[in-house]
Design a protein around this nucleic acid. Structure first.
Lengths: 245, 245
DNA sequence: ATGACAAAAAATGAATGCAAAATGGTCTCT
DNA sequence: AGAGACCATTTTGCATTCATTTTTTGTCAT
């Protein structure tokens, strides 16, 4: 009598798209990956209560591995665990977002500095390629394409830093602000968009010259500007039509 | 009898001195704090197997909360969990240490930059005070005092950054390399010691002028030098190692 | 009708139980 | 005697169960 749970659909789908390097072959590891994605994707409203039983039914497992995964997600800062009151999706205050953006700025700044020490001409060429691609999206006002290529550029810089620890930390913080970061780029401010393009050109220039310290400054400032745009976008979240003022 | 852990009666004292702000009132939270300290303090040899039941007996709890704490510690990078083979204290390769030092460098570099934006004259005065105190330890060849004051200075800079997220991340990474970081300062190289003092003066100078970008560079380089000293000290580890008293 | 109190229901925290996998030792076969 | 196979013990992973705490609900009094 092991199967007390109705087999509705496929409880555990193999997360083939994941990094897979980690030793997440066990059930709790699988659950962890799926729950993290589930939360990051925004399937649970901010601050909503999430009964364990419900998640168990959804995932087709018992509470033990689920609770283990919840503890890890809490330590990652994605959710918060109130004693005897269950888990809630962590609600980020404006201050939290500012702090997170600043930490991201520090990490990218570091990534740029380290990248200048070891990046190859081929990697720079690849980033240049992405840059031109992004420029195309910019010209075509393709916000979605721009956003994706932009992320790939930043990830390429992090990858070029050749530091797995940094890469992991970066991915962790990026997950926390994913939704906001996305909407930040969606701010209709064309001026900010053009400014970001110029900043990216400066980034590329410093990268070509392997000017680590300089690139560090530029990247920090770039993220600071993105932070400002994100915060501004959050405080006045009405933008369906091009506002007149 | 495969006891890898010294069996004292009540080995782990209650961590009353911990940053009790956290909502770790529950049992698993308490266990987490105690286990983390226990591991960070180096009570378990590198790479040693740690049977769950033994830890349970030691802590006087059942396996469920212990396993939850282990999962969290693994996500923090302190231990690693091999599927069906239990938890091992994570053994840091030289490359791991290099990466960790670089990430620490990035975080301190960020902290310095942010600190310049908001630090008060009083805070700077306090750091100056610590600096002179440290100079005294340096003159008296008091390695232990020097080490402690040095840490307090760096922590003060991080605190001055006014970013709790950064502070938490910094504490996390600091925990991972605590032992090595300590021994790094124990390197008998007097030359490096004098150099570090000069670097600290430059840090203080940039801080007084609120020169964020400059301070960022100096702090990064300072940590880079510390990293070099630590690695060097590890590759030729023949000094009278600080054994347990 | 509203508020307070109390009991029921549900959810969480921790312990125990059970199956699968790994470890260790012994035995057999060459 | 040595290498490999086999079995017993230990250990891990997960499910289930038990005990508290919280939340809801129903009733009563004002």
């Amino acid at each position: 009598m092991k199967s007390t749970i109705p087999d509705t659909g496929v409880p555990i789908a193999p997360t083939a798209a994941n990094g897979g390097d980690r030793q997440e072959a066990s059930l709790h590891g699988e659950i962890l990956l799926r729950l993290r994605d589930y939360v990051v994707e925004g399937n649970i409203p901010d601050g909503a209560r999430v009964p364990e039983r419900q998640l168990c039914a959804m995932l087709g497992i018992s509470r033990t591995p689920l609770r283990e995964a919840l503890k890890v997600l809490a330590s990652e800062g994605l959710i918060e665990l109130l004693p005897n009151r269950g888990a809630r999706v962590r609600q980020l205050s404006q201050r939290d977002l500012e702090e997170l953006f600043d930490v991201m700025a520090g990490l990218e700044s570091l990534a740029g500095r380290l990248a200048c020490e070891a990046i190859t001409d081929e990697e720079i060429a690849a980033i240049e390629q992405l840059h031109y691609e992004m420029y195309g999206h910019y010209l075509h006002r393709d916000m979605h394409g721009y956003f994706q290529t932009n992320q790939r550029i930043h990830e390429s810089i992090v990858a070029a830093a050749r530091n797995e620890t940094l890469k992991t930390a970066y991915a962790n913080f990026a997950g926390r602000i994913r939704r906001v970061r996305y909407s930040a780029n969606f701010a209709r401010k064309r001026q900010r968009w053009a400014e970001a393009m110029r900043e990216h050109e400066a980034i590329l220039d410093a990268l070509r010259r392997r000017a680590g310290s300089e690139l560090s400054d530029i990247l920090f400032q770039h993220l600071r500007n993105k932070r400002a745009a994100a915060i501004e976008h959050l405080t006045e979240p009405h933008e369906d039509a091009p506002a007149s003022p």
